[in-house]
């Protein structure tokens, strides 16, 4: 049954995504499924049944005539000749995703090292080891730069995925979509922890201050180190999850978005009827973040400024409900 499904998906992959084509695919699937089930019920082996169903399927050129798709089919043939899409195989895509995960952690650690490089100087200041602190800082920066260069070098190998038109078959798209699903919770968790760490990096300072520990000079330094570590680890999680997420998206969007092969692209993406509102909404969350950060830093009113998030969340869903229209899958 899987084989038949894949066969049908592959046949349709280069056809335009129109209601007629989607309906035709569903109907043909219905017939093939019925025929397959009956053959199995008659006692045929799975292989035999699949063979019969596929051999009696016919060809799409015939369908094209009646669906008014001659032009589309011809165009897709032409497109294949004019601008051949490089077909990525499943192993290649798997390697790419693994490489992106490695790159994510490497870039994340690089940024972490950059942010936290000064902790040595802070910790060892006013001691005889001050020079060693500076040395350690320089070593850490060098390591971070090394990681960036290494990651960029390894990444260059995959540049064709970004520059050349590529395509993937149905089985690969399905694999990537399931991998994305599998990692999705972890990635969301990482991002949330990252944002939380950054947003609460001032907590140790406030805590130490409230119990009067900051009178000691050494505590000031420790507070600064904790702040840097929290921001560093937070940014690591944000960078890592963003890179991995982007790699999944990249592969899933690789097929021409007007064809049936692109079915895994965000079906839930909300579009607003008014194009200006559409542009406005695309910067909604970054704007809220800016307002939150500037308000908080200007007034140091962290205790109540977080209220902007629930308010913004409610406002967002109200706007989406009233003015948005979900893009047809």
């Amino acid at each position: 049954m899987e084989t038949i499904k894949k066969y049908l998906e592959t046949m349709f992959a280069n056809l335009p995504r129109t209601p007629e084509v989607i309906k035709a695919k569903d109907e043909l699937w219905q017939m093939m499924e019925d025929k397959y089930n009956e053959l199995i019920a008659e006692g045929r082996s799975e292989n035999e049944a699949v063979g019969i169903v596929i051999s009696e399927f016919g060809n799409l050129d015939e369908l094209a005539e009646t669906l008014g798709l001659e032009q589309a089919v011809e165009e897709s043939h032409e497109l294949m000749e004019l601008e051949p899409r490089r077909q990525l195989c499943m192993d290649e895509v798997r390697d790419f995703l693994h490489a992106q995960m490695a790159r994510g952690s490497m870039m994340g650690i690089g940024v972490l090292f950059c942010i936290t490089c000064s902790i040595w100087v802070i910790l060892l200041s006013d001691t005889i080891l001050e020079m060693i602190g500076v040395l350690l800082m320089l070593i850490q920066i060098a390591l971070a730069v090394g990681m960036f260069v290494f990651a960029a070098n390894r990444h260059a190998k995959w540049s064709y995925i970004y520059k050349e038109p590529c395509s993937i078959d149905f089985a690969t798209a399905e694999y990537v979509a399931s991998e994305k699903e599998r990692y999705s919770l972890g990635l969301k968790g990482q991002r949330t922890i990252g944002i939380l760490l950054c947003a609460t990096c001032w907590l140790p300072a406030a805590l130490f201050d409230s119990i009067g520990l900051t009178k000691l000079n050494i505590m000031d330094n420790i507070v600064a180190v904790m702040l840097l570590l929290m921001v560093g680890v937070g940014v690591f999680f944000i960078v890592n999850s963003a890179i991995v997420r982007a790699s999944f998206e990249k592969i899933l969007k690789i097929n021409n978005e007007k064809t049936m092969g692109s079915q895994f692209v965000d079906a839930q993406k909300v579009l607003y009827e008014n194009p200006r509102l559409n542009n406005l909404m695309s910067v909604y969350w970054p704007t809220i973040t800016c307002i939150y950060l500037s308000w908080s830093f200007l007034t140091f009113n962290w205790g109540s400024s977080w209220l902007i998030w629930p308010i913004a969340g409610i406002a967002h869903s109200v706007i989406k409900k009233n003015l948005g229209c979900t893009k047809q899958a």
């Binding site: 109907e27 043909l28 017939m31 019925d34 025929k35 009696e56 016919g58 060809n59 015939e62 009646t66």
Partner: peptide
């Protein structure tokens, strides 16, 4: 419906004519 029709065509023609799925769907539309 689709499969039922193709099955009947096969039976009525004593298995001498098997209509392809794409042919059948084209005819429907």
């Amino acid at each position: 419906y689709g499969y039922e029709i193709s099955k009947q065509i096969k039976q009525l023609s004593d298995g001498k004519y098997i209509i392809k799925e794409t042919t059948l769907y084209s005819a429907f539309t």
